[in-house]
Deep mutational scan, measured.
Amino acid sequence: LVRYRTISKIPQITLNFVDLKGDPFLASPTSDREIIAPKIKERTHNVTEKVTQVLSLGADVLPEYKLQAPRIHRWTILHYSPFKAVWDWLILLLVIYTAVFTPYSAAFLLKETEEGPPATECGYACQPLAVVDLIVDIMFIVDILINFRTTYVNANEEVVSHPGRIAVHYFKGWFLIDMVAAIPFDLLIFGSGSEELIGLLKTARLLRLVRVARKLDRYSEYGAAVLFLLMCTFALIAHWLACIWYAIGNMEQPHMDSRIGWLHNLGDQIGKPYNSSGLGGPSIKDKYVTALYFTFSSLTSVGFGNVSPNTNSEKIFSICVMLIGSLMYASIFGNVSAIIQRLYSGTARYHTQMLRVREFIRFHQIPNPLRQRLEEYFQHAWSYTNGIDMNAVLKGFPECLQADICLHLNRSLLQHCKPFRGATKGCLRALAMKFKTTHAPPGDTLVHAGDLLTALYFISRGSIEILRGDVVVAILGKNDIFGEPLNLYARPGKSNGDVRALTYCDLHKIHR
């Protein structure tokens, strides 16, 4: 019993810090008490220290592992850092350059016999395009090294910054494609005289377009951006097909006994025919423009016929181009109408809503002055909100995010209106959640004399007048207030005048 009563005193000691020596009952000389009392004092002292730490809000209350900052290894790049964003855009520009100039170089340097010394005699450094290609190869190699040090988000939505895990993730992902696209074939085969082989191998750079397509997928929600990307894709495919079309004609031209190829026909049409040795002929500019003209006309199913396939190889390629053109029509131009419709969806919704308003007016036989006010209010409210119901949009977000959005939407009023000066951010967040926005066209009466005042109004834009009878008592403008002081009276009061809008007004109100 003594032991039980001794232990039962522990909660009292913990909360009230009572010393055991003052209790005459606990001072009985028993061996059990002498053993338990020192333990009680020690526990009391420890609990006292913990309570003191909690009340003082000291940093040592938290466990040590929670006080440590997340460790980022040296030379690790955050995937959302500004440097990584700028670097990704730079790589994107280099990939676009590669997609345009690599097929052009591979096709127009394929057994090209233009006048001038061969590239091997001039030297590697004197070729501007080769120098640019070398810079692109170096940048792609540097990009691989950067990807080995860039964080990523795993399946659990955690940012991984450990170098080993980053390397394994990159090896399992895009490393092989990036490595093949970054191989400097110019340096590996330079001086061997195989410019045709170098041009063909350099087309491996186009593998990076797969990554670019995935990154550009984030802009699919913007109709104008999608339309622009589709047109660029169409032009890029036409450019690639033009390079292939020229390569076919250029390879067949020296081996044909009869002059029936499209390059021969082009030379005869523009007065620059090929001679018996295969030299001469149109310039590279004429060849490229004509090839691009043929691919565009074939892809769009126009086909004027002034550039036509004559050999079997050219006919087979033309059939493939027609098939590609039909697929592009289905996948690209078939979506253009939907994209344009999405661009004008706001206008369509406006006309639909206006039609419903006019049908309501016609069905209920609203008189002319009231009908005009109804239409003007709808037009003004639509121009202010673009038909978007803010309350319906915010309803799907958590309250903390709703408060931040409301604070942002009402920031101008909260910053410049005098009653809100000096208020804490928590108070402003709470008030912003209570605001209701209303609009009024010129001549609209917001409050009639004798109406119950259940709200306090803040003028965000425009001006109003307060009338008693036919006498203008006051004219209020931006950041002015009218209405009933909230919670100042037990019952809502009545208006002693009319409140009429002089201009288009936007008002925020808080109800009782």
Results as ranks from 00 to 15, higher is better:
Leu67Thr: 13
Pro441Val: 11
Cys243Gly: 01
Tyr80Gly: 07
Leu145Gln: 01
Gly193Phe: 12
Ala238Glu: 01
Tyr97Asp: 01
Ile141Thr: 14
Val131Asn: 01
Pro117Gly: 08
Val289Ser: 01
Ile260Ser: 04
Cys122Glu: 01
Arg211Ala: 01
Gly305His: 01
Ile189Glu: 12
Leu414Tyr: 10
Ala225Tyr: 06
Phe304Pro: 04
Tyr104Thr: 01
Lys287Met: 04
Gly305Thr: 01
Val132Gly: 01
Lys395Ser: 12
Ile144Lys: 01
Met256Tyr: 04
Asp88Gln: 01
Gly426Thr: 04
Tyr344Gly: 10
Pro163Val: 06
Val210Asp: 05
Gly249Asn: 03
Gly422Cys: 12
Leu94Phe: 04
Val168Ala: 09
Lys66Thr: 05
Cys417Ala: 09
Arg349Glu: 04
Ser331Glu: 01
Ala338Trp: 09
Gly173Glu: 01
Val289His: 03
His73Lys: 10
Ala204Val: 07
Ala204Gly: 10
Ala213Val: 07
Leu93Gln: 01
Cys417Phe: 09
Met139Tyr: 03
Ala242Glu: 01
Phe435Gln: 01
Asn312Ser: 01
Trp262Glu: 01
Tyr246Pro: 01
Ser326Pro: 12
Arg74Ser: 14
Ala381Met: 08
Tyr80Asn: 14
Ile366Asn: 01
Thr290Arg: 01
Ser81Gly: 12
Ala181Lys: 01
Thr203Glu: 01
Val159Thr: 05
Arg373Tyr: 04
Gly249Ile: 01
Pro128Ala: 11
Pro369Ser: 07
Tyr124Glu: 01
Asp257Lys: 13
Glu115Tyr: 03
Gln415Asp: 10
Ser283Lys: 01
Gln365His: 14
Tyr293Glu: 01
Gln269Phe: 01
Ile198Arg: 10
Thr445Gln: 13
Glu375Gly: 03
Thr438Asn: 09
Ser301Val: 01
Val95Ser: 01
Gly271Asp: 01
Leu129Glu: 05
Ala235Cys: 14
Ser258Ala: 09
Ser337Pro: 01
Leu394Ala: 04
Leu409Lys: 03
Phe296Cys: 04
Thr98Leu: 01
Trp240Asn: 03
Ile361Trp: 03
Ser337Trp: 03
Gly261Ala: 01
Lys84Ser: 02
Glu375Pro: 01
Pro163Ser: 06
Leu227Gly: 01
Ser297Ile: 01
Leu266Ile: 01
Thr113Trp: 11
Ser161Val: 11
Gly278Cys: 01
Pro82Lys: 04
Ala106Trp: 05
Val95Ala: 01
Phe171Leu: 13
Lys66Leu: 12
Phe185Ile: 06
Gly123Tyr: 15
Thr290Ile: 01
Gly426Gln: 04
Asn391Val: 10
Pro70Cys: 05
Val136Asp: 03
Glu376Asn: 13
Ile361His: 01
Leu110Phe: 08
Asn265Tyr: 01
Ile237Arg: 01
Gln379Ile: 15
Ala99Ser: 03
Pro309Asp: 01
Glu195Thr: 15
Arg358Gly: 03
Gly199Thr: 11
Gly396Val: 09
Tyr293Ser: 01
Ile340Met: 07
Glu359Trp: 01
Phe360Thr: 02
Ala213Gly: 09
Ala291Val: 01
Gln253Cys: 06
Ile166Ser: 01
Lys436Leu: 09
Gln253Gly: 08
Arg71Leu: 15
Pro103Met: 01
Pro367Asn: 06
Glu314His: 01
Ser220Glu: 05
Asn368Cys: 10
Leu229Gly: 05
Cys406Asp: 01
Gly281Pro: 03
Asn391Arg: 05
Pro128Leu: 14
Lys172Gly: 05
Ile270Lys: 01
Leu413Cys: 07
Pro442Lys: 09
Tyr344Cys: 10
Gly116His: 11
Ala247Phe: 13
Leu145Lys: 01
Glu221Met: 04
Ala235Phe: 07
Val136Thr: 06
Ser326Gly: 04
Tyr124Asp: 01
Arg211Asp: 08
Trp174Cys: 03
Ser192Phe: 14
Val226Thr: 13
Leu428Arg: 10
Gly249Tyr: 01
Leu279Gln: 15
Arg211Gln: 09
Ser412Gln: 12
Arg208Leu: 04
Asn156Trp: 05
Gly267Thr: 04
Phe360Ser: 02
Glu157Phe: 14
Gly280Gln: 01
Phe140Trp: 03
Asp257Tyr: 01
Tyr377Phe: 05
Glu252Arg: 01
Ala449Ser: 14
Phe83Gly: 14
Cys126Ile: 01
Gly271Tyr: 02
Phe234Asp: 03
Ile177Thr: 04
Glu375Cys: 05
Asn410Arg: 11
Ala213Thr: 13
Glu112Arg: 14
Ser258Tyr: 03
Arg74Leu: 05
Ala403Ile: 01
Arg356Glu: 15
Ser220Gln: 13
Arg214Thr: 04
Ile135Trp: 03
Gly443Gln: 03
Ala181Cys: 03
His380Cys: 10
Tyr219Gln: 08
Thr352Cys: 09
Arg214Lys: 05
Ala125Met: 12
Ala392Phe: 04
Pro103Leu: 01
Leu110Lys: 14
Gly123Thr: 06
Val131Lys: 01
Leu187Met: 14
Gly223Thr: 09
Cys243Gln: 01
Arg208Val: 09
Glu359Ile: 01
Arg342Phe: 05
Leu236His: 01
Trp87His: 01
Tyr377Trp: 04
Ala242Arg: 01
His169Arg: 05
Trp240Ile: 03
Ser412Arg: 10
Met328Val: 09
Lys84Thr: 01
Trp240Lys: 01
His408Ser: 01
Val302Thr: 14
Val357Asp: 01
Ile270Ser: 01
Lys434Asp: 01
Tyr350Gly: 01
Ser220Lys: 13
Gly325Met: 01
Ser81Met: 01
Leu394Trp: 02
Lys436Trp: 05
Gly191Ile: 04
Ser161Lys: 05
Leu206Lys: 01
Thr347Asn: 12
Asp178Thr: 01
Phe83Thr: 07
Leu207Ser: 13
Thr347His: 15
His448Leu: 06
Thr150Trp: 01
Lys395Gln: 08
Phe228Trp: 04
Gly191Ala: 05
Pro441Arg: 06
Lys425Trp: 01
Val447Leu: 12
Phe140Leu: 01
Thr290Met: 01
Val160His: 01
Met322Trp: 01
Met139His: 03
Leu374Trp: 03
Leu129Phe: 08
Ser283Gly: 01
Tyr97Trp: 05
Ala392Tyr: 07
Glu314Asn: 01
Thr76Arg: 01
Met328His: 01
Pro117Gln: 11
Asn310Cys: 01
Ile339Tyr: 03
Val100Trp: 01
Ala238Met: 04
Tyr219Glu: 04
Trp245Cys: 01
Ala224Leu: 14
Asn410Leu: 06
Ala423Cys: 10
Cys232Glu: 01
Lys434Pro: 01
Leu413Ser: 01
Leu206Pro: 01
Gly334Arg: 07
Tyr288His: 01
Gln353Arg: 11
Phe108Ile: 01
Leu134Ser: 06
Cys243Thr: 01
Val307Gly: 01
Trp262Tyr: 01
Phe228Ser: 09
Leu355Cys: 13
Gly164Asn: 14
Pro82Ala: 12
Lys285Ile: 09
Ile248His: 01
Thr445Pro: 05
Ser283His: 01
Tyr80Ser: 08
Asn154Cys: 09
Lys272Met: 03
Lys287Gln: 01
Trp245Met: 01
Leu370Tyr: 01
Tyr293Cys: 08
Phe360Val: 01
Phe363Gln: 10
Gly199Glu: 10
Tyr377Thr: 12
Gly173Ile: 01
Leu93Met: 10
Leu201Asp: 01
Ala242Met: 01
Pro442His: 01
Val210Ala: 09
Ser277Cys: 04
Cys417Glu: 09
Tyr377Met: 05
Asp217Pro: 04
Ile248Pro: 01
Phe83Gln: 05
Leu94Asn: 05
Arg71Phe: 14
Phe185Lys: 03
Arg362Tyr: 01
Thr385Glu: 12
Trp89Leu: 01
His264Val: 04
Gln415Ile: 12
Ile141Met: 05
Gly123Arg: 15
Gln353Thr: 10
Lys111Phe: 01
Leu145Val: 10
Phe435Tyr: 02
His416Val: 06
Asp217His: 05
Tyr222Pro: 12
Thr150Glu: 01
Ile237Asp: 01
Leu414Trp: 09
Asp286Trp: 06
Thr76Ile: 13
His264Glu: 03
Thr113Val: 10
Phe140Ser: 01
